[in-house]
């Protein structure tokens, strides 16, 4: 039998012995996630604002980012490896492209949710287009936008584990290690830490958003679709 019956699911001394390696992999996980969501936002934000102003673009943009979303991550990584190698670049190309659909959709939805009366009032007060965007539309769209950033971050943290297959992976490294050796301790440790990291980031973003938009009383549910 591959896994002995008596073997405990979690061997604590393995974790203690590998604590510094676990911490290193956690930092890698955080870095891969931060870069992916950061670049994702840098791309999504101008695209979404532009599409919001030129509405006919929303269809093609959603279509294209939706197409990226349907490409299986495994295939994308496998296909990129011969050109960009087992590198951070390969991982980030995949991770960034999966954030775009969620981010763009939520930024546009957030801007769409700004009441027309508010917008008109601001224009009536002589706001320029730029002032309108930065001082009225963006603050009001913030809760929905942050809901998108939360979903994108949580999804990315999960996807980072798959990049273990191309030599990256952050905490996913331990999941792959355990899978290859049929050893459950690293799998469980990697999974629990990854989930805990995702939930911490999710909560931190929610708290940050509430602090920035104190006028919002009810929390906005993050919708995936």
């Amino acid at each position: 039998m591959i896994l002995a019956q008596g073997e405990p699911l979690l061997e604590w001394d393995w974790i203690v012995r590998h604590s510094s390696q676990i911490f290193e992999r956690f930092l890698q996980h955080a870095e891969l996630t931060a870069i992916a969501v950061g670049i994702g936002l840098l791309i999504s934000f101008p695209v979404a604002v532009f599409a919001y102003r030129h509405r006919w673009l929303i269809g093609p943009v959603t279509w294209f980012t939706g197409l990226l979303y349907t490409i299986p991550s495994l295939a994308l990584f496998a296909f990129l490896v011969p050109y960009t190698g087992l590198s951070t670049t390969t991982a980030e190309i995949g991770l960034v492209s999966y954030t775009l659909l969620i981010l763009i959709r939520n930024i546009v939805a957030g801007l769409d949710g700004v009441p027309a009366d508010t917008r008109e009032a601001a224009i009536g007060m002589g706001y320029t287009k730029r002032q309108l965007l930065w001082k009225v539309e963006l603050p009001l769209a913030l809760p929905v936008m942050v809901a998108g950033i939360r979903i994108a971050s949580v999804t990315t943290i999960g996807l980072v584990t798959v990049t273990a297959l191309i030599g990256q992976g952050g905490l996913g490294y331990f999941i792959l290690l355990g899978l290859r050796r049929f050893f459950s301790t690293p799998i469980i440790a990697g999974t629990i830490l990854s989930v805990a990291f995702a939930m911490t980031v999710d909560a931190a973003l929610l708290i940050g958003q509430r602090a920035l938009t104190p006028w919002v009383r009810r929390k906005s549910p993050g919708l995936a679709s």
Partner: peptide, 27 residues
């Protein structure tokens, strides 16, 4: 429950579930 289950579901990587379940189904 809806928000917490949805968040938890998104946070657990499918890859990890595969890795956890494989030894169990083999056993």
């Amino acid at each position: 429950l809806v928000t917490s289950i949805a968040n938890l579901g998104r946070a657990i990587p499918s890859f990890a579930i595969l890795a956890i379940m494989l030894p169990i189904t083999i056993r």
